[in-house]
């Protein structure tokens, strides 16, 4: 392990010393159309003119994003322009939007690896129109509605009894997820994502519950579950996969008995007695 750590540090150092000229993807940014040329585009693409006027790219000319547009313009008069200008891929977008620390690792982002392009989420001309029509999302924010287009399996979990308030609009998918990054480029601990809102359970605790200190996902599914408190399994199964039950404290006698059946009063919710499952400042049994 130590060797690996040293190797990593060496690689970091090597990276810093590499200072060759940076290369970045670029569209035809240098080929600036004049206002008259843009008007040429709009003379055919009238609807895009309206859309552009409303969008964030209102002052961006067509050639900045659509490579091959100049040739397209030349042959457009033929009424059958065979050569269509390309739609910008993510690298073309990043040629302008590169100076944002949130997008600098797009190359290694989960979405990028899954073949998702910027245009799949961002409308180039106007805000993206959602493909999914679902009135149950009437209180959610626009980002969540956009995510729901593809992540139907996750959306289904918000219909479960216990769920984070995403459908209710209290949270957005982007409250937790970095859409332009991924696990490979994350610099936070597994628990840090959750404790940026749930500070009250992060401690530091004198008595930690070790699985909780490692990864909230050991016990919780953040999207939704049929169990209480986002638990991946109902109690007591969740607890008893790791813990044994001491008969002399959960059974009905004071003897060091083992093998007696235990009432569901004790088993139904372990947390009814062990009410500090994330850790305690004072009790080693995590009761309070």
């Amino acid at each position: 392990m130590k060797t690996m750590k040293h190797m990593a540090l060496l690689l970091f150092a090597a990276l810093f010393t590499l200072s060759g000229p940076g290369a970045s993807a670029s569209a035809d940014a240098g080929a600036q159309l004049s206002k008259r040329d843009i008007d040429k585009c709009y003379s055919c693409h009238e609807e895009k003119e309206d859309q552009h006027a409303k969008g964030a790219h209102a002052n961006t000319n067509c050639l900045t994003c659509h490579s091959g547009a100049d040739e397209h313009v030349k042959v457009a008069k033929s009424k059958d322009p065979v050569k269509r200008p390309s739609r910008p891929d993510s690298m073309a977008c990043l040629s302008c939007h590169k100076n944002d620390s949130k997008r600098m690792n797009w190359k290694f982002a989960e979405h990028h690896k899954a073949g998702v392009e910027c245009r799949d989420c961002h409308g180039m001309h106007t805000p993206k129109v959602n493909k999914r029509f679902d009135l149950a999302l009437w209180r959610t924010d626009k980002n969540t509605q956009l995510c729901a287009n593809c992540h139907q399996d996750v959306l289904a979990r918000f219909n479960m009894r216990s769920h984070h308030p995403v459908k209710e609009g209290g949270l957005s998918c982007t409250s937790c997820h970095d859409t332009h990054g991924g696990k490979q480029t994350s610099l936070v601990a597994k628990t840090a994502q959750c404790t940026q809102c749930h500070q009250a359970v992060r401690g530091p605790h004198m008595f930690e519950h070790a699985p909780a200190a490692e990864d909230c996902g050991n016990c919780h599914n953040p999207h939704g579950t049929p169990n209480r408190k986002l638990l991946t399994l109902a109690e007591p199964a969740l607890c008893l996969q790791c813990h044994s039950v001491a008969g002399n404290r959960h059974g009905q006698t004071t003897a060091n008995a083992n093998g007696l059946r235990i009432s569901s009063t004790a088993l139904r919710n372990c947390s009814s007695c062990h009410n500090a499952p994330h850790g305690s400042g004072i009790d080693q049994h995590l009761r309070f």
Binding site: P226, L240, S244, V245, A246, N248, N256
Partner: peptide
């Protein structure tokens, strides 16, 4: 007219042993 319909199914099936002990650990 615009319409949509959706159906989702999730199943969790988990087995584990339960252990008792004669005293606290």
């Amino acid at each position: 007219l615009t319409a949509s319909l959706g159906l989702d199914w999730v199943q969790n099936d988990f087995d584990t042993y339960f252990f008792g002990t004669n005293r606290r650990r």
